[in-house]
């Protein structure tokens, strides 16, 4: 187990800077999730931690030791790849014990840890099989088993669940959460799936265009996003961003009543679940329902306002609204987010 620190870490390919000014302290045993859109640099950052990509600038330490130029094999980390990266010509057992085989651990001593990890992951009956004879979920388990056998200072996961189907993904997500609970080892997990991020993370690091946008607990990011990017990236469905007009005493969106807003705010954000359904004329904004998605537990209503464009509303349970209905929306005042011209959040006035 170890702390991981990055100070002004950057990465360049030629003249192209893909990561810059990355400052991050990861506590011992913490579960950190790196999220961001494709190409934001999250996988590159993970590969830099693993030692698979050289670091162009800044300092990177594991357990207080500078690791910038230390090869992957000496970093004492284990990594689970998106493609599983199982050695196809080795049995499951040999795959899992390969790290010990390389370190010349006698075969007898290898059996214990391999059997232990296999038992934890329900792989005990598959040890003599080859990876090609396994299902996707089983392969993922073997990849995790291989990492567990290492007993490393930190686990790295690079989108480990993205090749699995939806049901299996939920199952494996729980498996990873349990693994972290049991081992309490530092884990860094890369994903573009925000449900994975929200459910697994102690803290989430949101990256965009090679920069950290915000670091915080899942609820922190949900309730207090630092900027418009984080506000729209975290939370599903996405937050509605509405252009506002400054008026005396606050702001107005479309023909809404005046809303109290901090100075400098030019946009208002509200999550679909924080909008309320009202009769036309009785709410803050009047809209027309365009499409209704009934999920059973919730109903998503995609609406259109002539002044504000598309607005999504999520209502708990089932409601009697159909496409084409004219409805009203109410804004939950204490759930509003305000953004300035640069897209940064402005704190609500209390």
């Amino acid at each position: 187990m170890a702390t991981i620190e990055m100070r002004s870490v950057s990465k360049k390919y030629g003249n192209v800077e893909v990561l810059r000014d990355i400052d991050l302290n990861i506590a011992d045993g913490e579960f950190i999730v790196l999220v961001g859109p494709s190409g934001c640099g999250k996988s590159t950052l993970l590969r830099m931690v693993a030692g698979l990509e050289p670091i162009t600038g800044g300092d990177f330490t594991i357990g207080g030791k500078l690791m910038n130029d230390v090869p992957p094999r000496d970093r004492d980390i284990a990594m689970v790849f998106q493609s599983y990266a199982l050695y196809p010509h080795m049995t499951v057992g040999r795959n899992m014990g390969f790290s010990m085989e390389i370190r010349k651990t006698p075969k007898r001593e290898r059996l214990g840890p391999v059997a232990g990890a296999a038992a934890t992951l329900g792989l005990d009956k598959l040890l003599d099989r080859y990876p090609k004879a396994l299902s996707g979920g089983q392969r993922q388990r073997v990849a995790m088993g291989r990492a567990i056998v290492r007993d490393p200072k930190a686990f790295l996961f690079d989108e480990p669940l993205s090749n699995l189907d939806a049901a299996l993904r939920v199952e494996m997500r729980l498996e990873i959460a349990r693994l972290h609970q049991r081992l309490s080892t530092t884990m860094i997990y890369v994903t573009h799936d925000q449900v994975e991020a929200m459910t697994l993370a102690d803290r989430i690091v949101v990256l965009d265009a090679g920069r950290i946008q915000q670091v915080g607990t899942p609820l922190d990011l949900y309730e207090r996003p630092a900027n418009r990017f984080v506000a729209t990236f975290i939370g599903s469905p996405n937050m509605n961003i509405l252009d506002a007009t400054a008026v005396e005493g606050g702001m107005q969106i479309g023909k809404s009543p005046v809303i109290a807003a901090p100075k400098g705010a030019v946009q208002l954000g509200i999550r679909p679940e924080h909008l309320g359904l009202a009769h036309q004329g009785a709410g803050d904004i009047d809209v027309t329902a365009q499409l209704v998605e009934r999920l059973g537990s919730d109903t998503n209503i995609y609406t259109e306002s002539p002044d504000l464009g598309s607005i999504l509303l999520r209502v708990h349970g089932n409601v009697d609204v159909n496409a084409g209905d004219a409805i009203g929306l109410t804004l939950t005042r204490d759930k509003l987010h305000f953004f300035d011209t640069a897209g940064n959040s402005i704190a609500r006035q209390s």
Partner: peptide, 23 residues
């Protein structure tokens, strides 16, 4: 042959020549 295999081997403790020979 996916690059991941060599990288996994190097993280598992191989040098590049070892990864080349064994994997």
């Amino acid at each position: 042959i996916p690059k991941d295999l060599e990288e996994a081997a190097m993280i598992d403790g191989c040098t590049r020549p070892q990864a080349l020979r064994l994997v």
